[in-house]
Design a protein around this nucleic acid. Structure first.
Length: 519
DNA sequence: AGTCAAGGCCAC
DNA sequence: GTGGCCTTGACT
């Protein structure tokens, strides 16, 4: 605001010294300033001094709420005092030069000697350098007090946080610090020109600071987690950490083998062989103890027990397999295998049928895709696929009666799981977390229970680190959202166990015709 | 050529 | 990290 430019009203009010002092103490100063240029009169120094410490305006220099207004008022106020001291009675004397000359005397941040305009405010070399370093090095400061530290020449170095905040509040713009560090020249007028733009830039600067602070907090949390996973702190020395662990898990996760169950395949030449197919489907069981103890005797393993076989195989390749006794693995798999089946099938469905997957186009012509929302579509799909595997038509009512509840539940689960947009890395962590989930009434030894819990904790932290990686897009689901989904998985698994149609999730996910042609 | 406002340097 | 002094280069 320019004092001279605004002195356009008709009859200006006339002030005496006392009323001017009162005005200065009220919030009406801005109003009177607009009339002042044409009513300038000599003022006593003692009255002038009494005004100075009591200035309190909405958006005054002490307030961060409306910085540009405050900056304008600072200039106006300084111009006013300058004029008051000059005894001038001519409004034309209120020149831009006077304003700028006076305003440039003191640093608007710390009141040290100003050396000119720097990044949008009149500041000293110290505040200029401080602001430049802060922006260039993306510094995030924290105030140890209450963000109300006073900044003056003497104590400006006591609190970087409040000093930087004051720089911003005085109109210094982070945009004015050049990213390319090009020396010389001047920044374009556009950065500083109009009031509105400044306001928006200041708002963006504040957003920028908040964003930086958020990023800093996340980096700190990640560092903290990584520190916890350092070798000397890790509970299991043999277990790698972070990316290496995830890489190992992804490499050893043979999802295709689990999905491509041999028991679900149809032989085009003998697909009328109904009895063996039924047998295959019903023999998928949970004989984990048996498998762990006599796994090498593979001739005993029937094709129908493939789910167990595959899960046992997977467990044996886990990086922490040797950390736990066999009975612990048996116990865990016995408790969690149904959840692992649903999780694996769900992830497979999401990765193959998601809109961004290249496989989608490949599947469109099959016109029998799994639905993420409609259980009836999936029941029809199941009916068709059962007919393929068994070699005879099954009435829809039968399918609905036997598998209706399971299909409804699995469809709901798919829907919520697809929203999580789980990456392959997050999926393998989630699988380990699911396996390592102990029931409250676990019969294992206390020491083993502790080990399992520590291991699970390790995978939760690994998952969290993965989710916080900068490469992950901003839409990445949070750890909490993923963990909150697990009870739903657990509930769905009880439906699966109840129905005993353990193969249904796999049959829904993969067309048995494709199983035939896959090899 | 002078001014101004960027960045850089370096003793502290 | 700070801040005084110097260099740089667009603009007048």
């Amino acid at each position: 605001m320019n004092v001279a430019a605004d002195s356009t009203t008709g009859t200006p009010p006339v002030f005496d010294h006392e009323s001017l002092a009162l005005v200065a103490q009220s919030n009406l100063l801005q109003f009177y300033l607009t009339h002042l240029a044409s009513t300038l009169m000599p003022i006593k120094p003692e009255v002038r001094d009494s005004i100075t410490p009591n200035i309190s305006l909405p958006g005054s220099p002490n307030s961060d709420t409306d910085d540009s207004v405050s900056a304008a008022l600072v200039s106006s106020t300084q111009a006013l005092f300058s004029l008051l001291g000059t005894n001038t009675t001519n409004s034309s004397a209120v020149s831009k030069k006077v304003v700028s000359k006076t305003a440039s005397k003191l640093c608007s941040v710390c009141a040290d000697k100003s050396t000119g305009l720097h990044y949008g405010a009149s500041t000293c070399e110290g505040c200029k350098g401080f602001f430049k370093r802060s922006v260039q090095n993306k510094k995030i400061y924290h105030c140890n007090q209450n963000n109300l530290c006073e900044i003056d020449k003497q104590n400006r170095n006591r609190c970087q946080s409040c000093r930087f905040r004051k720089c911003i509040s005085k109109g210094m713009l982070t945009e004015a610090v050049r990213e390319d560090r090009m020396p010389g020249g001047r920044n374009g007028n556009s950065i500083y020109s109009n009031y509105k733009q400044r306001r928006s830039i200041i708002r963006r600067t504040k957003d920028y600071i908040a964003e930086q602070e958020q990023e800093q907090r996340e980096r700190e949390r990640e560092r903290e987690l990584e520190r916890e996973l350092e070798p000397e702190r890790r509970p299991f020395q043999s277990l790698p950490s972070g990316k290496k662990l995830i890489k190992e898990l992804v490499e050893m996760d043979c999802l295709d083998r689990l999905i491509n169950l041999r028991g679900l395949r149809i032989n085009p030449s003998t697909n009328c062989d109904i009895a063996p197919a039924c047998k295959r489907l019903t023999r998928i069981g949970k004989q984990f103890i048996f498998f762990f103890s006599s796994f090498t005797n593979s001739q005993i393993i029937a094709s129908g027990d493939e789910i167990v076989e595959q899960l046992v195989e997977w467990t044996k390749t886990l990086p922490f397999f040797d950390e736990l006794p066999v009975e612990a693995h048996t116990h865990l798999l016995t408790q969690r295998w149904a959840e692992l089946v649903l999780l694996s099938a769900g992830y497979y469905a999401c990765s193959v049928f998601s809109p961004d997957s290249p496989d989608t186009t490949q599947m469109i012509d099959e016109s029998d895709e799994i639905s993420f929302t409609n259980p009836e579509v999936n029941l029809r799909l199941l009916q068709n696929r059962l007919a393929l595997v068994l070699g005879k038509e099954i009435p829809f009512e039968h399918v609905s009666k036997e598998a209706g509840a399971l299909v409804v539940r699995f469809t709901t689960l798919l829907h919520s799981f697809s929203k999580l947009k789980v990456s392959p890395e997050a999926y393998v962590c989630l699988k380990a977390i699911t396996l390592l989930h102990l029931s409250a009434d676990s019969t294992l030894d206390k020491s083993i229970i502790d080990k399992v819990k520590t291991l699970q904790d390790h995978f939760v932290k690994t998952l969290q680190i993965h989710l916080h990686q900068p490469g992950e897009n901003s839409e990445t689901t949070s750890l909490a959202q993923i963990l909150e989904w697990l009870p739903e998985l657990q509930n769905a698994s009880s439906v699966l166990l109840h129905s005993k149609m353990f193969y249904v999730p796999f049959l829904l996910c993969k067309n048995p015709r494709r199983l035939v042609f896959d090899e």
